[in-house]
């Protein structure tokens, strides 16, 4: 895993601490006309390394907003989000980009594959930024595709595969760099039951065998079945935090 990462790198995540994510007094407000809408209000959470956690709740409860803040895609209006003790919100654009590239994988509801690239190239993409050799990249991509059972369609384009396959490609892309955290926003929302279960099986296996921390946002009962910890959000607040 990522234990080989450079100790002097400012983006290095200290794997000795057990809390990989710490959310402290986080509030997020969005401007709506001349007023503001509070999407998250004073959230406090700790996520441990290797957790398989889900944020659940109705639409508008703040699940995706919180996931975006953890992924350094957005910054909180108040409070801090610490990834292994480091506040991600105050990082520069370049540093937060590096953090996302090296430590965080994303799985999106609508897959977000790059249409002009092949499946292989889509999965390879995060590694291009890490300046790995061609041989290293090829090995990592094929391994990731094998994990999701798609090594036979590596040369196809995203437009030539099904939704279930596209989401598995997105999973392969999120884990190819062996990140510490994978953030999955409604990963099964666009899939039928069979594919949804297949996806969750794969993610569970990756969590157990590679030790990657997964954090979901979902209101899909099929996802919830798999979660070991369920954090319920309502109106931007933590309503319940339950470990199975």
């Amino acid at each position: 895993m990522s234990t080989q990462k450079n100790e002097t790198n400012e983006n290095h995540i200290d794997m000795n601490t057990n809390n990989i994510i710490e959310i402290q007094n986080v509030t997020k407000r969005f401007p709506v006309g001349e007023t503001e809408f509070t999407a998250l209000s004073n959230i406090n959470l700790k996520i441990e390394k290797g957790e398989f956690t889900g944020l659940i709740g109705p639409s508008g409860s703040g699940k995706t907003t919180l996931l975006n803040l953890i992924g350094a895609l957005d910054i909180p209006s108040e409070g801090e989000i610490l990834i292994s003790g480091k506040n991600v919100a105050v990082k520069s654009d370049a540093k937060s980009a590096l953090l996302r590239n090296e430590h965080i994988g994303f799985i999106f509801q609508s897959y977000n594959l790059l249409p002009v690239y092949s499946i292989f190239e889509n999965v390879e993409f995060p590694l291009l930024l890490q300046k790995k050799s061609k041989a290293e990249r090829k090995e990592a991509v094929m391994q990731a595709l094998e994990w999701v059972g798609l090594s036979d369609i590596a040369n196809k384009k995203p437009s030539q595969i099904s939704g279930g396959q596209a989401q598995r490609v997105a999973i392969a892309r999120s884990i190819v760099k062996k990140p510490d955290i994978v953030l999955a926003d409604e990963p099964t929302a666009n899939l039928d039951s069979t594919n949804a279960y297949k996806i969750m099986d794969i993610l569970k296996k990756l969590n157990e065998e590679l030790g990657i921390t997964f954090m979901f946002s979902s209101h899909d009962s099929k996802v919830i079945e798999y979660l070991r910890r369920v954090i319920t959000l309502e109106d931007g607040k933590v309503k319940n935090d339950e470990t199975k």
């Binding site: 654009d93 370049a94 590096l98 996302r100 977000n112 249409p115 930024l129 892309r173």
Partner: peptide, 16 residues
Amino acid sequence: QKEIGTYIALGFTKKR
């Protein structure tokens, strides 16, 4: 736009 967002999520800076 979705592609731009994906580049950023995968580790591109906005400048890049």
